[in-house]
Write a protein that binds this DNA or RNA. Structure first.
Lengths: 223, 223
DNA sequence: TAGATTGTTAATCGATTAACAATC
DNA sequence: TAGATTGTTAATCGATTAACAATC
């Protein structure tokens, strides 16, 4: 990224696919560290997922020059850089909305806590659940989302309510100034531009699998 | 798709993104049917997700000429075509491997049954779970995957075991001739070419959200 | 027939890959 | 120094969009 003296640095838009791959590189670097390697090349990183090494270098180069020519990347340094870039060097308070089967499973999911994601409040509409505590986490009524979240510094929400209720919940979360939503409801959420939504649509994924399954059965039969 | 007499029809490779969108079009068409509409245009479909109408037409045109010029698509006909294309006009037997929190949640998840996905056998290694039945669904030991699945016509598997065990489970599923795997373990599975894997990597998704959250906090602070 | 909308080709855009000078 | 590997530019590839003839 060469530029003349006095020019502003150009901030290139970072493709979402790059961000997704950063997490994967991080996981991979951690594996290399566990194997006792102190450096790793873009080629070695790429091989683990069938990616191109130039892509790995390009992805990393969006954020700085982390490598050493002729040597590769120091695993420890790369790990720390990736954690910093991904915002994993801090704790995130998370609100979970919807304490059904899926919500309960996520609440118990170790993967969250491990990476500094703390579900610190849960919301539901079911009177038999509201008012209880799960461990130290209070279960509150969905109507209280705005007042409760305004008092806390929570920037991420997880939606595990039925499709019909999801948009209303998202609207409330947005009102409280949340930045990111992980949405498990099978519906397209409409949110303002600054809010990032990740959809985990099991129903769409299953249909995609169904497509490929019926295709390969068809091919098999045809032979 | 014009071609000379006698030429073979060219089967274009269908982009995975197209397949994903088909499921979304189906959901949308169902909503339009519920609203009592008998036809729908590519423009109307596109608007619901901020897509381009040409993309909708192109996606559908991979599979045939379903539309009527000047009119649009008959909602009922399109629904049936999409269901046929996606293989949703039949039941799929599904094997679930891993009866932890997430596995249990999926087992209870209504969305599966609704679309003809029947989890008909569950596998785990935990001696306290193996041998039990959940409703009519038997819980068997993971060691029995190959003999049990060989006797049944199961073409899809869901993996909800820890990352370390996932590849071994995938290998076993592949041995039984499975076509598609929905993988919740945070690890890259290696499978033969004919097998389709959909990864649902919660850990990667959370990290992506964390990236955007910390970015927008940074931007906010900078102002 | 006039208006609308498809199916499809050509243009555009964005992401991936190849290639290579810089440099450890 | 010679070999290796980065960071980056240019070429390629694939997906999206614009445009429009075909046609209901």
């Amino acid at each position: 990224m060469k530029r003349e003296r006095g020019e502003r640095p150009i901030k290139p838009r970072i493709p979402e696919k790059t961000v997704t791959r950063l997490s994967i590189y991080l996981r991979c670097v951690e594996a290399f560290i566990a194997d006792g390697m102190s450096t790793v090349s873009s080629q070695q990183l790429a091989e683990r997922f069938g990616l191109n090494s130039a892509l790995v270098r390009k992805d990393l180069a969006y954020f700085g020059q982390f490598g050493v020519r002729g040597l590769g990347y120091y695993t420890e340094g790369l790990k720390q850089n990736l954690e910093r870039i991904l915002g994993l060097n801090q704790e995130w308070g998370v609100a979970l909305v919807g304490l059904g089967n899926l919500g309960s499973a996520l609440l118990n999911y170790r993967g969250f806590q491990q990476r500094g994601f703390r579900i610190s409040v849960v919301f539901d509409t079911d009177a038999s659940k509201v008012g209880r505590r799960i461990g130290s986490i209070p279960v509150c009524h969905v109507e209280k989302i705005v007042p409760i979240l305004k008092r806390r510094r929570i920037k991420m929400g997880i939606i595990t309510v039925p499709a019909g209720a999801a948009q209303a919940v998202a609207d409330q979360l947005v009102t409280t100034g949340i930045n990111a939503i992980l949405n498990f409801a099978p519906t397209q959420l409409t949110v303002p531009k600054g809010v990032k939504v990740q959809n985990v649509d099991l129903s769409v994924m299953l249909k995609t699998l169904s497509f490929y399954t019926s295709r390969s059965s068809r091919v098999t039969r045809a032979r």
